[in-house]
Design a protein around this nucleic acid. Structure first.
Length: 271
DNA sequence: AGAACCACCTGGCAGC
DNA sequence: TGCTGCCAGGTGGTTC
């Protein structure tokens, strides 16, 4: 489900409910996620103070007074703050118990998500080798140009490689390439310097707009029944195969790249 | 080193 | 209605 804008939205929603609180522990109903939930989670969390909540790529990091929790939503994960008792659904795999009586509930039907503990999260194997944050100031055309030199892989697949750039999944890779007028199949190393600048700006713009849209649907997700409005943005190409391009009216095409669906306008996007 | 493919898991939907 | 097959927003691991 979540790419960078969704994780950022979740993070912003959770922060005021978590930061400065103490944890009472955890209730784990299903420990088999992408990696096993630590068997000592309840004991490890009991009494811990939540210092901060932050995002790194698509990971959420909950820094504690000792160590940290690392959360990943996989493809179908969601987090909700519950303030009153509610029976857990079939995919509500665990709750983190807060000292004010509330709970942070983790739901993930496909179980591709993760809940991990680390004494030093930034050096955790999953986080230590992550690439550049596309919304950081230093992410620009020059950086993208350097990252793509000598790479024969298609630009779309390179954008989705978290070891180079984090947070860009299938939706936003398609959308950013459309905005930049670049064919997703173009070999990354063949991108000119000016087109790298165009693409870097398109990525930042696409993600920033999506975060702004996600923010507006945030409140009801955090407080009660969940399901943030991930689908409420209007995509230019993603999921629009056979529909007219909003710019030129030509039909959007779809094809497979690396086992994932790509969408592009054959007129507006060029090699 | 880089690229291609597979695996993990469940739910929803189209087509028969 | 119910079955089958396919698709889905992620990413680490294996193989060549």
């Amino acid at each position: 489900m979540p790419e960078l804008p969704e994780v950022e939205t979740v993070m912003r929603g959770l922060r005021p409910h978590l930061q400065g609180r103490r944890l009472r522990g955890a209730v784990v109903r299903q420990a088999r996620l992408r990696w096993p939930v630590p068997p000592d989670l309840d004991a490890a969390l009991a009494g811990r103070l939540i210092r901060s909540v932050r995002r790194r790529g698509k990971y959420l990091v909950v820094d504690l007074d000792q160590g940290a929790l690392i959360l990943h939503l996989g493809m179908s994960g969601s987090l909700r703050i519950l303030t009153r008792p509610e029976p857990p659904g079939p995919h509500d795999h665990l709750d983190l118990l807060l000292d004010d009586g509330g709970r942070l509930s983790f739901r993930d039907p496909r179980r591709f998500g993760a809940v991990l503990l680390s004494p030093d999260p930034d050096r955790h194997p999953l986080l230590a080798h992550l690439g550049h944050e596309p919304l950081d100031d230093h992410f620009d055309g020059a950086l993208l140009h350097a990252l793509t030199r000598g790479r024969r892989v298609a630009i779309k697949q390179l954008l989705m490689d978290a070891h180079l750039v984090v947070g860009i999944g299938n939706i936003y890779a398609n959308e950013a390439l459309y905005r930049a007028g670049i064919d997703p199949r173009l070999a990354a190393g063949r991108l000119s310097r000016p087109r790298c600048a165009l693409l870097a700006e398109a990525i930042r713009d696409t993600l920033t707009r999506a975060i702004a849209a996600g923010g507006s649907t945030l409140r009801d997700f955090v407080d009660s029944r969940g399901e943030p409005g991930y689908f409420q943005q209007t995509y230019q190409v993603y999921g629009r195969a056979g529909l007219p391009c909003r710019a030129c009216g030509g039909l959007i095409r779809t094809f497979r790249q690396g086992g994932r669906s790509s969408f592009a306008c054959p007129t507006c996007q060029r090699r």
